[in-house]
Amino acid sequence: MDLCGLKAGERARITGVEAGRLTERLALLNVYAGATVTLVRRAPFGGNLLLEAGGVRLAVRKGLAARIFCEKEEE
């Protein structure tokens, strides 16, 4: 599944990132294959996802989130 399938508060382990030239930027914000990421919340109006990865908080748009694949982690 990809990040868009997560619900607020759920944690997931990233299995793949297909973000083109943004892949490296994401990796430096702690979003890379093998990293754990939490979906903190979603913005209203179908907006961005607020993620937390290794202490860094970042916002990504849905289009980009759909290209970050992950597996849900059980609490």
Binding site: L22, L29, V56, R57, L58, A59, G63, L64
Partner: peptide, 9 residues
């Protein structure tokens, strides 16, 4: 295209 925004505390 897309950009990634860091959200400061």
């Amino acid at each position: 295209g897309e950009f990634v925004m860091e959200i400061a505390r």
